[in-house]
Computed example of a mutant assay.
Amino acid sequence: MRMMFTLRPIQKRWLQTVLLQHGDANMVVVVKSSAGCIDKILFAPNMTILPITLIYFQGNRENDRATLQWGVAQNEMLSRFEVERSTDGKNFISAGVIVATSKNGSENYSFSESASANIIYYRLKMYDKKLSADYSRTLVFKNSPNGSSLKIFSNPAVDKLTLSFFAVNSEPVAIKVYDLSGRLQMSERANVSQGENLLSFSLNTSLKTGLYAVEVNNGNEKLAAKFVKQ
């Protein structure tokens, strides 16, 4: 809430007070001359207001199970997260509650549940210590006609990897290759079309023989599969 009021002129000056409230109050006093020039500004904060900062919010759906991951800054300011689910993108219900940890600074969270609906939406309702709430963006997971899966045609792979997958929308995607320790080995970007897609890209010559994981991520959903590099 924001209120402003003006007192009567005193010695050709106007005293204006702006009161900012968000839980506790911060007071700003602005002293102006009769000509409208600012002579003095006084600021008396009673508290520091830190917004809820969501660093990332992503997820994937595989074998009729949805998994969400998110990270926040200023974790000590948070009370809990309510994971909300919808099948129409308009009417949301609570799917679960995650209580914030006591860790200061940044923190990571996850949530997983069975998800058999053809299309399903998720968002976070985030509560701070004063129980003020803020919402995340909404993630949407859709089943493709053949199921949301990532298929590898060149497995084992020698110098090139060929992927097949269904895309809900025409959009850019990130393609990443990880070793079994979770270390990123390659990163590519591609533009895909709505429907079935077939992508091929060359593997780095630095990749040693072994087992790797490839991931296709559009920012809302991840598809992953494993392959062998010969």
Rank of each mutant, 00 (worst) to 15 (best):
L207M: 14
Q69N: 05
N204A: 15
S200N: 02
M3Q: 10
G96I: 08
L15M: 06
A167C: 13
A100D: 07
S149K: 06
N26W: 07
G36W: 08
L203N: 02
G59K: 00
E84V: 13
K130W: 12
K151D: 03
E215A: 09
I49D: 15
R85T: 15
K125Y: 01
K222P: 04
A35W: 08
K90R: 12
V228N: 07
R123K: 13
T138G: 04
F153P: 01
S86F: 04
D24W: 06
A100P: 08
S202R: 06
S106D: 12
S110C: 10
V158L: 11
L7V: 13
M3T: 14
L54C: 09
V214S: 01
Q16V: 10
Y127M: 00
V99N: 15
S114L: 05
S94G: 09
N220P: 00
S132D: 05
I93C: 09
T205C: 01
A225T: 11
N217Q: 11
V30A: 09
G147S: 10
A225Q: 08
F201S: 06
R8M: 09
F227V: 03
I152N: 00
N75Y: 07
W70Y: 11
A44Q: 15
A95G: 11
F166T: 00
Q230L: 15
E107S: 10
P45M: 15
S181P: 02
L54P: 06
S110N: 11
T209P: 02
G210W: 04
S164I: 04
V177P: 00
E113P: 01
A95T: 09
I10R: 09
I55E: 04
H22M: 09
F81S: 02
S164T: 12
M126L: 13
S116A: 13
L50S: 14
R80S: 15
D179I: 01
Y178W: 05
D159K: 07
H22E: 12
T209C: 04
A25T: 08
A157I: 13
K151H: 06
L211Q: 05
E62G: 02
L184F: 05
F227H: 01
S149N: 07
S94F: 08
D179P: 03
S187C: 12
F166I: 01
W14F: 09
S79G: 08
G195K: 12
L131F: 12
L203F: 07
G96R: 00
I93H: 12
N217S: 13
N204Y: 05
Q16N: 12
D39A: 10
A190W: 10
V177K: 00
N63T: 14
E76H: 12
L124D: 00
S132Q: 06
F166A: 02
N217T: 03
K125S: 08
S154G: 10
M4E: 11
